[in-house]
Amino acid sequence: MADEDLSMNEDQLLDNLDEANGEHEAELMNRLTNEQRLQIIEFYYQNQCSVRNVFRALRPIYGLHNRPSEQTINAIVTKFRTQFTLLDIKPTTRMRTVRTEENVSESVAEDREMSIRRRSQQLGLCYSTTWKILRKDLGVKPYKIQLVQELKPNDLPQRRIFSEWALEKLAENPLFYRQILFSDEAHFWLNGYVNKQNCRIWGEEQPEAVQELPMHPEKCTVWCGLYAGGIIGPYFFKDAVGRNVTVNGDRYRSMLTNFLLPKMEELNLVDMWFQQDGATCHTARDSMAILRENFGEQFISRNGPVSWPPRSCDLTPLDYFLWGYVKSKVYRNKPATIPALEDNISEEIRAIPAEMLEKVAQNWTFRMDHLRRSRGQHLNEIIFKK
């Protein structure tokens, strides 16, 4: 074992010595000027292409100990024969696109809505470089445009008056927001279309595959009532044989009488205010009669004891929270039928925690304050979270 270890140590020492010699020869070769390398090549061909003869011929010029070694001479000759040059060739590097922050910054200042792809084409930069300049160098971020309901001039004073009424009630009772049952309907369309860009059929021949799409896709109309403690619903509007229908006066009143009022009694919801928007089926004479009979003067509606301002979906939690939240979840498993879609809607609504609904209702109080300060205008401070 000792002889084997000694042999292994000797081999390792020889390898380290060869490596050191190689590095030393490379260093000597790099120290030679181009004229000195040319001189070595001339001596090489003048002395019968013999490296040993060149080594001897260089002794009078460099001295006994300063002349290049035979390994260095051989490396110079080999380089000349294989690369046809005596110069040091630096490795080529890929030309990188110049990142001009100034040009991109000026482009953004001129047009903030231009896409990254269009901007990169206009500036002659690649897409990834343009993205890095925008995000990392300039520190700008992409923001989506916010869609809001168009307001008419006469809407502003009505919105301001409603905010003042709400803030007065909150001043009397800071928990007044818990006494309001907000209500609304929404349409959920059956998501049954095919995205042709993401659908491919592989084969040797054209399969002539088509999919027929209905002119009017199926949908279900859903009603919900939301308050700080929970959600009443969902209620799906259907006709006598169970087919999905839209809401009208008779169907709305049937929902109030046969669904909402029994549910409120079951949940022991007393001394509650009821809110609805100004849809015709809501404000029909018979519908208003049912509300007055059951809520007295404690309901909010167009033509009601407390007037609900028109075009104010930003003031009801169902529009600024519930419908968007539920629609972002119910299509994840791509329901193929209306019953499957309805099951998803019911499941997602039941899964909303009470703590979230409390925060949503509290947000309504903040909106009333912003609405008064904006004098009925859009709630920019909330929309853009200033």
Rank of each mutant, 00 (worst) to 15 (best):
11 D>L: 10
13 L>H: 10
17 L>Q: 14
21 N>E: 15
26 A>I: 07
27 E>V: 07
29 M>V: 06
29 M>Q: 12
30 N>P: 02
31 R>Y: 12
37 R>I: 08
38 L>N: 10
40 I>T: 07
45 Y>S: 07
49 C>L: 13
50 S>C: 06
55 F>S: 15
55 F>C: 07
60 P>V: 08
67 R>E: 03
69 S>V: 10
70 E>T: 11
70 E>I: 13
74 N>C: 09
74 N>Q: 13
75 A>Y: 14
83 Q>G: 00
87 L>E: 15
87 L>M: 11
91 P>R: 02
93 T>D: 04
93 T>A: 06
95 M>E: 14
96 R>E: 13
98 V>C: 10
100 T>A: 10
100 T>Y: 04
110 E>R: 11
114 M>V: 15
119 R>Q: 14
121 Q>A: 01
133 I>P: 06
133 I>H: 03
136 K>E: 13
137 D>N: 15
145 I>P: 00
147 L>V: 14
152 K>S: 13
157 P>L: 08
165 W>D: 09
171 A>M: 14
171 A>Q: 15
175 L>W: 06
176 F>H: 01
179 Q>N: 14
180 I>R: 00
183 S>Y: 06
184 D>T: 12
190 L>E: 07
192 G>H: 08
195 N>T: 02
199 C>E: 02
203 G>Q: 02
204 E>S: 12
205 E>T: 13
207 P>H: 10
209 A>I: 12
209 A>T: 11
215 M>C: 08
218 E>F: 11
220 C>Y: 05
221 T>Y: 04
222 V>D: 08
224 C>T: 13
224 C>N: 15
227 Y>K: 08
229 G>Q: 01
233 G>N: 12
233 G>W: 08
234 P>Q: 13
235 Y>K: 05
246 T>H: 07
247 V>H: 03
248 N>Y: 09
252 Y>M: 07
253 R>G: 00
258 N>R: 13
259 F>I: 03
259 F>C: 08
259 F>M: 03
261 L>R: 07
261 L>I: 15
262 P>D: 05
263 K>A: 13
263 K>T: 12
270 V>S: 14
272 M>V: 11
273 W>A: 00
274 F>G: 00
276 Q>C: 04
276 Q>Y: 03
278 G>E: 06
291 L>Y: 09
294 N>Y: 14
297 E>D: 15
297 E>P: 05
299 F>T: 01
300 I>Q: 05
300 I>Y: 09
301 S>Q: 02
305 P>M: 01
308 W>V: 03
311 R>I: 11
312 S>C: 05
313 C>H: 11
313 C>Q: 03
315 L>W: 00
319 D>P: 06
323 W>C: 08
330 V>S: 11
332 R>A: 12
333 N>G: 03
335 P>W: 02
335 P>Q: 02
337 T>Q: 00
337 T>L: 02
338 I>W: 09
339 P>M: 01
341 L>D: 04
349 I>M: 15
349 I>Q: 04
357 L>N: 07
360 V>D: 04
363 N>I: 00
367 R>S: 00
367 R>H: 00
368 M>E: 09
369 D>T: 13
370 H>N: 05
370 H>R: 02
371 L>A: 06
371 L>I: 02
376 G>S: 02
378 H>D: 10
380 N>I: 06
384 F>Q: 08
386 K>A: 12
